[in-house]
Design a protein around this nucleic acid. Structure first.
Lengths: 126, 126, 126, 126
DNA sequence: GTGGTCTAGACCACA
DNA sequence: GTGGTCTAGACCACG
């Protein structure tokens, strides 16, 4: 695996966001076991401490649960997943709209340029 | 003035973005003189070093020009403003689309939720 | 049964404390036979190792006794029960007082707030 | 300074609790500057990383605020202090009562034994 | 100077 | 085996 990381954002957070994305997209199931700290560290090519931090952050968010000596698991509460998806999406949109307004783009223009952007191309889906 | 700053993003960058926004929106004219480093530092309630950095960043972007002994000015090249506006806007949209796809939102849904968000309300225009 | 456990405290200790509580409250009699390690493990929904540890801890405290080939029993010494109750109680009070003093609550206030707390309500008796 | 730490509880949490206690008791004022991470590490005789963690925890609780490049400060919101004191106290009492009930002590007895404990002596105020 | 992140390596408690 | 804590030491961005 050994993904690469943007230098601007902390690695531990990038990994956390990646996990959340996979969870929200359904690539990780609720209640599913995550790789152990050490395992994930190797997969991601980082130090175990960094993963520890990632998992810690996610646990505080209620996204994962750690069971002593057994490993860490995605939360089993499906409701968390729903809530997560909605709030993240809303936050993204809100941020985007605010940014666009910030540079003087009118609301009706926003729709237009987004549509235009989507039509023009860019098959890159991350 | 003494604005407040989000703790997550570097202050010098927040100020830089604010200036660019004002420029792109036409609140600052091309060729207009900017406050001196000290003056701006006082206005913003931050350390002069921070403004120094802001101006440095903006100069590297070609957005401002410093004339020895006269002060710092917004670039006079109207073309820069145009280019700036387009590239920033494209970057915002690109980032937004990528984020939305990241959490599994299909392209045709993106348009919908944006429209919905704009209609639903939020009179706060920054 | 399959009780749930607080994640903050070791499971083996939580179970030990539960047994001691039941003993001190008279729900378990002196000399009474305890479930086997396996049995208890199933009842509690935990790993037998964990119960092993619980029993080991309790034995070191002199609260239970294991008779080879017969099983594990609550101690028959009634005196242990008495001593246990007193020492646990004292320890709890001592800890509590110390905590309250730690945040600056004066001794005469402690009594008051406890009384107040008891009167105010909370029918939840564990 | 170089205090000693109980082995059972994480050092970073013990330090956090000590700071909170001092804050609630008024030994640290709202808005007061705390020692830098390195400074505090030396004072406490631990690794800077440990203090980093302490400060991180406290910041998440809203007890302290970090200002980039300037240091970390006790929150200026006096309301946090009040809320903190009340909630900590309530939690302590709740825990205590629950413990006492757990070993079969009746409510009216609880008051008595606490009073008795306070009268009997123990001038040790930590 | 400040806090923030990361690595390497170790030890521990727990299941 | 698992996660949790801690140290030592390094580098970086920020003000």
């Amino acid at each position: 695996m050994t993904a690469e990381f943007k230098t601007s954002k902390p690695i531990y957070r990038q990994i956390a966001e990646r996990i959340i994305q996979q969870f929200v997209r359904g690539e990780i199931q609720t209640g599913e076991k995550l790789p152990s700290v050490r395992e994930m560290a190797i997969q991601s090519g980082v130090n175990p401490n960094t993963i520890q931090r990632t998992y810690g952050e996610l646990e505080r968010m209620g996204v994962i649960e750690t069971k002593r000596g057994q490993g860490t698991f995605m939360t089993e509460k499906a409701e968390v997943k729903r809530r997560l998806r909605v709030s993240i999406q809303q936050e993204m949109i809100h941020q985007f709209i605010q940014n666009m307004r910030g540079i003087g783009v009118k609301d009706d223009e926003i729709i237009k340029v987004v549509e235009q952007f989507l039509n023009e191309g860019s098959e890159d889906v991350d």
